[in-house]
Amino acid sequence: MTAPALELDCRELLCPLPIIELARHLTDVAVGELVAVVATDAAARHDVPAWCRMRGQEYVGEDSADDGSPRFVVRRLS
């Protein structure tokens, strides 16, 4: 996938803090651009896609950050 316009470092943050960070910073990127959440909390894997469904954004998928931490990528649709 193309490089995200913004990567949020949410390592070590417990749920729901990674999702709160995502919500706070979504509008930092333009519509159509990608924002990535790097999160080590186990709930993020489920809650980033659920947040996208509830908020009308696109869940692009999971890859890894440079250090191997799970990274969840979202496309801003609105």
Binding site: L14, P16, T40, D41, A43, D47, P49, W51
Partner: peptide
């Protein structure tokens, strides 16, 4: 939900449904 301890997994039921776990 299991938010206060990072070692705890969220509900496997909610996760399997794609529901919000927190």
């Amino acid at each position: 939900s299991a938010c206060t301890a990072s070692t705890l997994e969220p509900s496997h039921v909610l996760a399997a449904m794609g529901a919000l776990t927190h």
